[in-house]
């Protein structure tokens, strides 16, 4: 198990290196600079001296290869650089926002799990029933509905019409502020989990060993608990892992809409003003998060299904 764990962890390193290089190259060639972005809203006249001073301060007038060397050297020392805009270390900016992003992603995933998996199970146990039909229509709608639009609908309904919840913001970090953005973000993984669970359960229910269990006189409840649930678990863990890993990236739109102070909104703002160190650092953290979650999922596979460890 230790070798398996170490191997999976070491596999993260080349992926991170490739991603870091790609980010650097992409943001070195896209048009627009941080200095130019300061005048982009037209609210002040361009100041060539200031542009020159900023480009010099941030090393933007150095050759690409020199900037690349500095970037890689810093990265190797776990230094994500300094923000052009705030002049603070990028790692501090990410730290300030990371907890809010994690809160949102965890809450969305919990919501998706708690609602999606039981719905998928029940729909599969009663295929063709009203519950099954409603669940699948809901799942398709959840997958196809744009999150921004869904978020607005939730705001109108739960904040404006019913006045149950605040429509925006982090507030003092209370649970009430978290509900609307988390539910909006959780709808897509919920729909996916419900569909995946239903398909997985139906598949297992038709397997030979289920028929054998039934013919041995085992009760329906025991069959579901001992055989169906355990066999579907790998599928659910896979879906949860993939979705959970990508939730922080997906949260960009939700964070903007609900004025939620996560790293998604930090990324969007930083791209717009070409604050390249923050863009690079934030994307790297999102990718790292995805990889860590996937590695964790692989390790969980090994724990719940010994066949995977043997392979």
């Amino acid at each position: 198990m230790l070798r398996f764990t170490l191997r999976r962890i070491f596999q993260i390193i080349p992926t991170v290196v490739v991603v870091a290089l790609l980010i650097f190259v992409i943001f070195s060639v896209v048009p627009g600079t941080f200095a130019a972005s300061l005048f982009a809203d037209g609210k002040r006249a361009a100041d060539p001296q200031m542009i020159a001073r900023l480009n010099e301060e941030f090393g933007l007038n150095k050759p690409l290869i020199e900037r690349f060397t500095t970037y890689v050297t810093d990265l190797a020392q776990f230094d994500l650089g300094t923000s052009f805009r705030t002049r603070q270390p990028v790692i501090d900016l990410i730290n300030d926002r990371m907890w809010a992003s994690l809160q949102l992603a965890i809450a969305a995933m919990v919501f998706a799990l708690v609602v999606g998996v039981p719905l998928g199970f029940l729909a599969a146990l009663r295929p063709g029933s009203v519950l099954d039909t409603v669940t699948m229509i809901g799942a398709v709608s959840g997958l196809s509905m744009p999150q921004f639009w869904l978020g607005l609908l939730m705001m109108y309904l739960f904040a404006l019409q019913l006045n149950w919840l605040p429509s925006f913001g982090y507030g003092d970090g209370s649970f009430r502020n978290l509900i609307l953005p988390a539910v909006t973000l959780g709808v897509t993984p919920l729909a996916l989990l419900a569909r995946t669970t239903r398909a997985g359960v139906l598949d297992v229910l038709n397997a030979d060993f289920i028929r054998t269990a039934h013919s041995k006189g085992m009760s329906e409840a025991k069959v579901v608990r001992w055989h169906v649930a355990r066999n579907v678990l790998v599928l659910i863990v896979t879906t949860v892992g993939l979705q959970f890993g990508s939730l922080i990236g997906q949260a960009v739109v939700i964070e903007k809409l609900f004025a939620w102070p996560g790293i998604g909104s930090l990324l969007v703002d930083s791209v717009a003003i070409r604050d390249i160190p923050v863009v690079q650092g934030t994307i790297l953290v999102i990718v790292l998060w995805f990889l860590v979650i996937n590695t964790a999922v692989d390790l969980i596979y090994a724990a719940i299904d010994p066949r995977i460890k043997q392979e």
Binding site: L152, M155, Y156, A159, L160, N163, P166, S167, F168, G169, K256, L257, F258, A259, P261, S265
Partner: peptide
């Protein structure tokens, strides 16, 4: 901080 027009609209109407 509220960058989104649509979100600001809801929050204003909701007196937040």
């Amino acid at each position: 901080l509220m960058a989104e027009d649509a979100a600001r609209d809801v929050a204003f109407r909701n007196k937040e």
